[in-house]
């Protein structure tokens, strides 16, 4: 049941139209950050107000929504956002990636490949990939306009000179369609290869910073690198201790104060699906049946 005191999906229709216009312009200019008049939402800035507004502008009554934070459906903020849309839009929700038509995420791309017909909505804290090199919006806007990304390459190269590799492990910048440098939101760089050539629509919402941007399906997305230092996605050098997966992104869990730890899939739905299919990891409980 949706909450009758509010409009379908909470936002008023004029606000949704404004956001929808911004989304379409974002799709037309992949990777370019479209300013939008972000509204004050009934949750704090930093909790996903941008993603929530984009999701609210996209949801139809027929949608099935999945919300993840850090790859998990049951993290408190994911629970809170899912409940918000259950209340205000009355949409069906799911934890299964394959069942979802709209997925709102913070910091991960699901392990299971997305398909056409799905929309992945990212919560973005700082949409400007150049922000930490140049704090002024007036300057970074010019740099994008002039396609002046030298500063970013200098920064990455200095990393290599100092550390032998690029010391950015998440929110790793990408170049979209050979034009705009884009912040993929703080996903681990492990997830970067999934940004490009994806059959689903990817939308990015930054509420506090008032920006929306987008990647249409099958977009050309390249993680910035150098010929002699190619981009490498990385993950913990372990298998999942619950499902045994060797290729998924892992959370490290501290199990005691003696240095004991285990590694488990960050994507909880992916891990459960594998376990249900009989896959087992190093620390899987013994079968009792």
């Amino acid at each position: 049941m949706s909450d009758q005191a509010y409009n379908f999906a909470y936002l008023d229709e004029a606000t949704k139209r404004m956001i929808r216009r911004a989304i379409l312009k974002g799709l037309a200019v992949p990777g370019y950050q479209v300013p939008f008049a972000s509204r004050e939402m009934p949750m704090p800035y930093g909790w996903g107000t941008g993603g929530v507004q984009v999701t609210a502008a996209c949801l139809t009554p027929e949608d099935t929504l999945k919300v993840i934070d850090q790859g998990a459906d049951d993290t408190t903020n994911a629970v809170s956002i899912r409940t918000f849309f259950e209340r205000t839009a009355g949409v069906a929700t799911t934890t299964q990636t394959a069942q979802a038509s709209v997925i709102q995420t913070r910091h991960r791309i699901p392990e299971e490949p997305l398909r056409a017909g799905q929309i992945l909505v990212y919560q973005v804290p700082i949409p400007e990939p150049l922000r930490f090199l140049e704090p002024r919006e007036s300057e970074t806007r010019k740099m994008h306009a002039l396609e002046e990304y030298g500063l970013m390459h200098v920064k990455l190269y200095e990393d290599i000179a100092r550390h032998g590799e690029i010391s950015t492990a998440y929110a790793y910048p990408v170049r979209v369609e050979g034009r705009y440098v884009m912040d993929p939101s703080p996903i681990p760089k492990f997830d970067n290869p999934k940004l490009g050539n994806c059959p689903a629509i990817q939308l990015f919402g930054a509420g506090r910073e008032q920006r929306i941007y987008a990647l249409p399906p099958y977009c050309d997305v390249v993680s910035l690198d150098f010929e002699d230092h190619p981009f490498t996605p990385s993950k913990a050098d372990h298998d999942c201790d619950l499902c045994g997966c060797a290729t998924s992104y892992l959370d490290e869990v501290i199990t005691d104060d003696q240095g004991g730890r285990m590694f488990v899939c960050s994507d909880t739905d992916f891990c459960e699906t594998r376990r249900d299919a009989g896959h087992r990891g190093r620390l899987s409980p013994e079968e009792t049946a």
């Binding site: 409009n7 379908f8 999906a9 929808r20 799709l27 949801l59 027929e62």
Partner: peptide
Amino acid sequence: QAPQQAAQAFRACLEAMAR
């Protein structure tokens, strides 16, 4: 039914502009 129909029509526009 403006909120629901507008959402459905928007999804058509979204898919159109995306594909």
